[in-house]
Design a protein around this nucleic acid. Sequence first.
DNA 1: GTTCCGCATGAATCGATAG
DNA 2: ACTATCGATTCATGCGGAA
Lengths: 283, 283
Amino acid sequence: MTTKKTELARGELYEGDCRRILPSLPDESVHLIVTSPPYADRRRRSYGGIHPDEYVEWFLPIAEELRRVLNERGSFILNIKELAVNGERHTYVLELILALRRQGWLWTEEYCWHKKNCYPGKWPNRFRDAWERCLHFTKRRQFNMYQEEVMVPVGDWADRRLGKLTETDRVRDESRSDSGFGKRVANWVGRDKVYPTNVLHMATECTNKGHSAAFPLELPSWFIRLFTRSDDTVLDPFLGSGTTAQAAKQLDRRFIGIEQNEEYYKLCVERLKDDEQLHLKIR
Amino acid sequence: MTTKKTELARGELYEGDCRRILPSLPDESVHLIVTSPPYADRRRRSYGGIHPDEYVEWFLPIAEELRRVLNERGSFILNIKELAVNGERHTYVLELILALRRQGWLWTEEYCWHKKNCYPGKWPNRFRDAWERCLHFTKRRQFNMYQEEVMVPVGDWADRRLGKLTETDRVRDESRSDSGFGKRVANWVGRDKVYPTNVLHMATECTNKGHSAAFPLELPSWFIRLFTRSDDTVLDPFLGSGTTAQAAKQLDRRFIGIEQNEEYYKLCVERLKDDEQLHLKIR
DNA sequence: GTTCCGCATGAATCGATAG
DNA sequence: ACTATCGATTCATGCGGAA
């Protein structure tokens, strides 16, 4: 079986199943993986539609390869959300986190993507689902993180908040976080930019022409700035409509994208080619 | 060992370990449980500092009692967030969810409490933690949920959108894509309220007099309105500073609170007594 | 160049009905 | 009893064209 591959100035796109293509990538050659794999039983048209009960089993071999190709100081961001099955939230995402840890991954953080424009609907037992998980896994406790790259303008809330910290607040915070508090407060005084939190407020893009993106460009862009530098390599093994590659390219990172669906693959190539010409023209 | 108990007009407060007190409550006598149990803490030993590795084991017998006292159509809201241990998010909350399901609970939903003003701080490997889980468990697939009680004002897009209806607005407008999701805009005319999502935006309270609350009054209040009616009974087995009982009382629900710490217990009694007198005076 | 406004779109879920 | 399909429900956003 041949593998289709398109080489572009800043990266390469593969058409095919990532289970077959990932093994051809060299060890530790990637600095960041950002991906949104097909959710269980969703996107049946373009992917197989993995049964929730078989999800972990399906994903683990892929994760093993991802671990091999990831740099020792790199990060793996997994955007995922469990669906409701039979009135309950299914547990495959929880099981997956536990299984990935057994595989050797460190579950470093769970970012919360608040979807400002979530899917509509009404049901008797739940409200609209307006958040997804962005699970952050690493290979080591020490990894590259460039926090200054994602700082945000300070809101006036900070002044108010910091003025009113009570003794008990301080104690409670100590009990949760385990580290010095006072000196951290001092760090805040006089700043016009602050570090963000682990909650990301972003709307999905819903008016793309002819293709649907799993997440807005802003999402991979945020993680790419946070965890990589220029010329680092970003991998997305479930490239979909190509958002991750596009974000990487805009930020002058190299990218590797893998997409199984032929339509999506062609679309990615076209989009990134166009961008490329545009990019070169601008230069 | 005696149990201290304070009876108030709308509820009762127990001083002691809920593991000892819960068995004295009758079966299915509670309509809603809202609680924020002590966070895991590897440094302290007492209740209020259970070791992360022992958390599930510690909580399960309590959950079993909670299940017994909960009405068949009732809900259990567990506000919890795992802490970071050794650079990683600990997995005890995930394990707890799985264990509670094995115990017979249905994991119906996971609400996300976005803490609009989270504590400041800086770490090399993570940002400030600005969200907590509010896990929703039930005994049955069918349970009481009064969604109208928590509706919120519609976004300001509505005025413009609904001013003039086009032809397609009057009929069901099928989606062009394969989402299968059409809409009938005419249904929206006259609506000024919409149902909320499963993301709750609430600030933590930082101005409590002499004590710190695990969550703002608004949080239990929201779940109490959503899952109970007047005169229903709300239980918090880890009452802390009494926020849940206070919320229940304000909403004319009965309450049962259990608190082990003597200082907190006294404080609760005083606060709820004061409220009571105030309440009576106003009447 | 700005602002305004119309509008299709979206990782959804439940309950009923049919095989 | 268990699975597959179908209809009903719902809301905030960014895009693009117009003013």
